Amino acid sequence: MSIQLEFINFIVPRKVIEEKYPGGWSRCLDDHENLIGGRVWYDDHLFRDGAMNPEDIGSLVEEWGRLGLHTHDPENGEPSRWVDVCVVEAAFGGATIPCDWLETDGSVAFHKSFPAGELIGRRNFCG
């Protein structure tokens, strides 16, 4: 499966959420209940949240880091590689820094370990 990208995207593998998010996948869905189908959607492998500006995406990265996810590896004080999360700018067609587990193709992203398959986005999200 694949997820549609819009503006600036914050993406997390569902497996990571199941393992590291306090309360797992079901708690994550409960915590984002009011956003699902709006700025949040997901497929069988990826969870997507998003924003229209870097400050809001930065807040998401910080928030998920406080929840226990390893957001990025630093190098010389700067992020060098996404680890448990990935930020993708749709207009520029890719991750803001390298991300080993995510593949992007225009306005679409999918987990590299699985086929691209059906596209899930705001317009066809069924939850």
Rank of each mutant, 00 (worst) to 15 (best):
S59W: 12
D84M: 02
C126M: 09
L102V: 11
P79V: 02
I57L: 15
L5I: 05
V85N: 00
A90S: 13
V87H: 11
M52E: 11
V12F: 08
D84C: 01
G94Q: 09
P22A: 00
N76W: 15
G65A: 15
E18T: 00
Q4N: 11
G58A: 06
L102F: 11
V16M: 09
L67I: 04
W41K: 02
W101N: 09
R122K: 07
I17H: 00
P98T: 10
R39A: 08
R48L: 14
D49E: 05
A90L: 03
E19C: 02
N53W: 05
T96A: 06
S59L: 13
W64T: 10
R66M: 04
E63F: 10
A51F: 02
V87C: 13
V83I: 15
D43H: 02
R123H: 10
V40W: 04
I36N: 06
F114D: 08
R27L: 05
I17L: 06
E89Y: 14
I120V: 15
G24R: 01
S80F: 04
V61I: 15
C28D: 02
G94H: 05
M52F: 11
D31F: 03
N76G: 10
F110D: 01
V12A: 02
E118W: 06
C99R: 05
P74L: 13
T104A: 05
E78M: 12
C86G: 15
C86T: 11
D105N: 13
A91E: 01
G121L: 04
H70C: 09
D56F: 05
A51S: 15
S59P: 08
A109K: 10
F47M: 12
S113R: 12
L69W: 06
N9E: 06
S26H: 00
R66E: 04
D84I: 01
F92R: 12
A109N: 06
V85L: 08
F10P: 09
D44C: 07
V85Q: 01
E55F: 14
V83D: 12
V108E: 10
N124G: 04
I8T: 09
E6A: 13
E55V: 12
I57Y: 10
P54V: 14
D84Q: 04
A90I: 05
G77N: 09
G94C: 10
E6F: 11
E6Y: 11
M52L: 07
E19P: 01
V40Y: 10
I57E: 10
A51M: 00
V83T: 14
S113M: 06
H70D: 14
G37C: 04
N76M: 12
F47S: 02
R81A: 11
I120M: 03
W64E: 04
W25P: 02
E63W: 07
G94L: 13
G77I: 03
G38C: 03
A109D: 04
C126A: 14
G117A: 08
V12Q: 03
I8R: 10
S26Y: 00
F7K: 14
E18V: 00
C28V: 08
W101H: 09
F114S: 13
D73Y: 10
L69H: 07
A95N: 02
F7L: 10
G37S: 06
F92L: 14
N53C: 14
V88Y: 01
P79E: 03
I36W: 06
E75N: 06
G65N: 15
A95C: 12
G68F: 09
E19F: 00
K112G: 11
